[in-house]
Write a protein that binds this DNA or RNA. Structure first.
Lengths: 254, 254
DNA sequence: CGGTACCTTGAGGTTACTCAAATCCAGTGG
DNA sequence: CCACTGGATTTGAGTAACCTCAAGGTACCG
């Protein structure tokens, strides 16, 4: 089916600048030549990170705006009891840790899930640019509110949906985000382990595993360890669209 | 125990300006006399709202910054399937709908849970003030990031905690917020119905009801309809501090 | 080739959901 | 002032979903 060298490459592609979330910012938009020059000067490309190396820790001041260039990153918070709460995954082309923008201090942690590289813009430079560019301000506000919307979405997913639906939504989200960056949406590698997926979705490892197996038995997907192949996308969408768990059914009194 | 006129008043107190979230903004801070005058001129006090009357609908442009003066308000979103998702409750002194600030368009709905009054600052005036006052900008950023933090907290609560813990946290949150506004934290009225509480917490009506009853049997609280009295606050805290449901226990690999 | 960590699978228990019925309560009209 | 009524809340019994505990399998690394 899939030869080994191919398999090894899945999920390891380099992001092209055109696919980076900051691209619209860097090139496509109404930045002046000087602004663009400044940006290129301050941009540090391809900072390498080892697997399990932290990008930042909770409480630390925010040092830079960071985009994943290759590899992948996990964001998590610590609960009051010290438990890890996985709050998101970042794929190549995505910006990490925007929730620190307001306070310029990271509320949570970020760690590389595999050997990764990033592009960074030092925060001081970035803030200077912010002050001079209304356009840049707007891009950032948009990115922030998108992240807020995503958190709201996760709220819905984690709290109210059954396991099948949560896992289906997770797979579709991954697939869609990869497609945005021009990767194959029907065959990809989950770079996080089952524990992280389970934590992110508010389930146990075993439930995630069983759910994936069930979907495989139903010929909706094919799973081999971290490798996933989508066999029947419409069936997967069906799993995702259905099955609210508790009520939340009736409308507000009118 | 409690005579009727007293009971009727619980939860119906008027907020004093000193207890309003905008007070620091209005009076205590470094606003110039002119700024303060402007604010007082544009402030519309005591807009009355009937029970079940909407303050705004999803998708509508944001018209004003609104503070609850008396009564209470429920915020909710609609899921893709059209289900109501309760995202928060606003008590006297609290600001409604800040999540619309970025886009100046409301992502969700807000409806009065009882006859209520508000204070409003028209958005155009507010935006004008924002432009002139870095101090005001900072206050708003802080309020926004607080709301983001609260959403994150809710994410934790809704997805990962058992019913007892969720309900206990909900009661403590209400109690604390009332105390902030100088109301009795040990005896208050829940202005939303069980359906709204259940929806907010990601549970069913029956589970909420049973949980409250169980807490009453355990002499932790006393419940009569919407009226709640906290009998044993430390026991309530204990219910809230415990019992993560699924695993989310191990730390990230090092 | 052995070890370790990750993943899968099975059996059993617990929690919270579903369905159904009884009770409570506020608001209404006599 | 009181009986009535519809909605809200509580309570009960049964069930489904998911968690827990435990064992076995697989893949990766030295």
């Amino acid at each position: 089916m899939t030869d080994d060298s191919q398999v090894r490459d899945i999920g390891h592609n380099e992001t092209r600048c055109e696919d980076c979330a900051l691209f619209s910012l860097c090139f496509a938009q109404e930045l002046s030549t000087e602004e663009r020059d400044l940006l290129n000067r301050v941009l540090k490309r391809q900072q390498p990170l080892d697997r399990n190396e932290h990008l930042y820790h909770g409480g630390q001041p925010m040092k830079s705006i960071t985009v994943v260039r290759s590899g992948s990153v996990k964001a998590y918070q610590l609960s009051h009891e010290g438990d890890e709460i996985v709050s998101g995954f970042y794929l190549p082309g995505e910006i990490i840790g925007l929730d620190a923008l307001a306070s310029e201090r990271h509320p949570g942690f970020a760690v590389a899930l595999e050997d990764s590289r990033t592009c960074e813009i030092p925060l001081v430079d970035f803030v200077r640019m912010l002050k001079g560019s209304p356009r840049l301000n707007q891009v950032m506000l948009t990115l922030l509110s998108e992240e807020m919307a995503e958190t709201r979405e996760l709220l819905l997913v984690v709290g109210r949906l059954d396991a099948r639906t949560r896992v289906a939504l997770f797979l579709l989200s991954m697939s869609k985000r990869l497609a945005c960056r021009r990767q194959d949406p029907d065959q990809f590698r989950l770079t996080m382990d089952r524990r992280d997926i389970a934590n992110y979705l508010g389930l146990t490892i075993e439930t995630v595993s069983r759910t994936l197996s069930a979907m495989q038995r139903a010929k909706i997907i094919e799973v081999r360890g971290k490798l996933v192949r989508v066999l029947d996308r419409s069936a997967l969408r069906e799993q995702a669209a259905q099955h609210l768990q508790p009520e939340s059914r009736r409308a507000s009194a009118g």
